[in-house]
Design a protein around this nucleic acid. Structure first.
Lengths: 325, 325
DNA sequence: CTGTTAGCGCGTTCAC
DNA sequence: GTGAACGCGCTAACAG
């Protein structure tokens, strides 16, 4: 920067102002300085800037995993928004491990990020502490929080569970089961299960939680085992990929869908667009959620107060994998 | 940090040494200081550190998109490795736009990252310039480069194209077509097409490049259109998700697979594990690629010289969606 | 509109 | 094994 200043015969401050595009400098000098900077291939030093102003244009984003469309969609919506606002994304995948998230949060805080985004609402207590006392906006996304760390944008997973549960009940199914992730592993799954139980009170909701592998096989294997053992008449799945695996398992086992077994997915993933049989599922506004979250956060960064908790609507899509009422 | 020093009755330097874990400080003081730091909730300032040492523990990773399993898998392999080495990932999605990548590279360089990773080998000329002259390791991943910016880990997409092309030929198919991404949009696709053409010389390789949407529908719609128009007897797809869409389209159109139409996917994605009919495809070592790339890069960061270009092997998986020889 | 001064928090370099 | 001085590159706050 000193080089640029010298070549332009101005002070460091003038160069700084020119580059940052702030007020208080003649348009002529600005153009001149920017030209010289380009010639000299001047690369600003963000660390120095960050040190001087005590913050950065980094935004931290923590998600459980890149696998599946869900978090990718959310991330996409957010990244787009942040990017055009000049922020860079420091991304973490926790693999559902709170300790890993804590480590990452600590490391991130040392960069004085402009904001931080966490997936879901259950975090390591120290994460909550650290973030509550940190003077930066925090967004919790995907779930609904009664008492978010700062702000929160998500859907009501329990209500979603009630919707699909009620539908199944209305269709005459009586022996539901749920192919899901390991308990405690994914609080959303637990919330949805709770919603299903709200409807099927007194009815046993079987929960099959196969070991982790990919969603398709998990759905496939979970279903295969269930069909031969517990013989449910309707199976809820954590997501549409699992549901597809389940569909394949039913087909292979000779169980007819939707008569012998009803299949209910979740999320409205891309694959539903090409299946020969319309999957009963719930469409979740993942991109919108990302965008809304990012907007809220940008507003917070700029000091605007926003609604603490935002619940986005979901859309229930009855299909042909459950009986008609 | 000054607070910690005062409370411990030592100088700033001693605290600095204690926290960094370097030599030249008594074990007793180190323990003492670390305890006080924790009590005081001391948060180091990475910007200051970065400014002093003129580098950072940030690693930049640029990929086209989060959609699909491919880049997610690669990313996963890398992130794991970097994370445990203490680096944070600054991630960008270019959406296949070289300008976007350039902007991001510029912004990233201002942070003096420890390394930078780009997907593929075709980049904005200024990206190459900027990175060639920057004193940091650069990894290009997924493709094979004759002349990488720095180092490169990938597969030989053209050779992969030849493998599937040859297989199709051996099975007696004569009228191939390729459902792919828009030309120029994805150089890997073009390389694979080239490989197919290497085999089917003189044979017209139809290329269907539907507008962007999700992979499943792209495969579905591309196939539907092709079947009625060009009537190919074998269709190659950019990936397995597209191939699945194609499979569904054939089923709907009453075209029997593999007799009327052969279907060839790519990548060996998760969905292949649950299909009732084994998909002919090519398994790509995506996770391994990520890990290998990350290891190479860490080696480079530590000054070790590594092979400039690494080609990973692929595995051809003949299935039931192509005729047997 | 422009320049000067001071300092952001840490690590390097040298003393002791 | 420990500490003091200096500087990394930039910007806030002021002075002109």
């Amino acid at each position: 920067m000193a080089d640029v200043a010298q070549r332009a015969n101005v002070s460091l401050m003038t160069v700084s102002r020119a580059i940052r595009g702030v007020e208080g400098i003649s348009e002529q000098k600005r153009v001149e300085i920017l030209k010289i900077a380009r010639q000299l291939k001047y690369v600003p030093n963000s660390a120095a800037r960050s040190l001087a102003v005590a913050n950065s244009n980094l935004i931290g984003i923590s998600l459980p995993t890149f696998a599946g469309e869900v978090f990718a969609d959310i991330l996409n919506g957010m990244r787009r928004t942040f990017d055009s606002a000049g922020y860079s994304s420091v991304i973490d995948t926790t693999e559902y491990n709170p300790e890993a998230e804590l480590d990452w949060v600590r490391r991130l805080l040392s960069w004085k990020p402009a904001a931080i985004i966490l997936t879901g609402i259950d975090h390591h207590p120290e994460v909550r502490d650290a973030l509550r006392s940190a003077p930066i906006p925090v967004l919790e996304i995907w779930d609904q929080a009664d008492d978010p760390i700062d702000v929160c944008v998500g859907i009501d997973h329990r209500a979603a569970g009630r919707v699909i549960g009620q539908h199944a009940r209305d269709c005459g199914y009586e022996k539901p089961s749920f192919v899901s992730a390991p308990r405690g592993h994914d609080v959303r799954a637990d919330a949805r299960l709770q919603g299903i139980r709200d409807v099927f009170e007194g009815v046993d909701v079987l929960t099959r939680r196969p070991e982790l592998s990919d969603a398709f096989s998990t759905g496939f294997e979970g279903t295969r085992d269930l069909i031969f053992a517990a013989k449910p008449d309707v199976i809820f799945f954590l997501n549409d990929h699992m549901a597809f695996g389940g569909l394949m398992a039913c087909q292979m086992a000779g169980a007819s869908v939707p008569d012998d077994v009803g299949i209910v997915g979740f999320n409205g993933l891309d694959i539903t667009g090409v299946l020969p049989i319309r999957l009963t599922t719930v469409r979740t506004p993942r991109r919108l959620m990302g965008i809304t979250g990012a907007r809220n956060l940008l507003a917070r960064i700029n000091g605007v107060t926003v609604q603490r908790s935002t619940i986005l609507p979901i859309e229930f899509c009855p299909g042909e994998t459950t009986r008609s009422k």
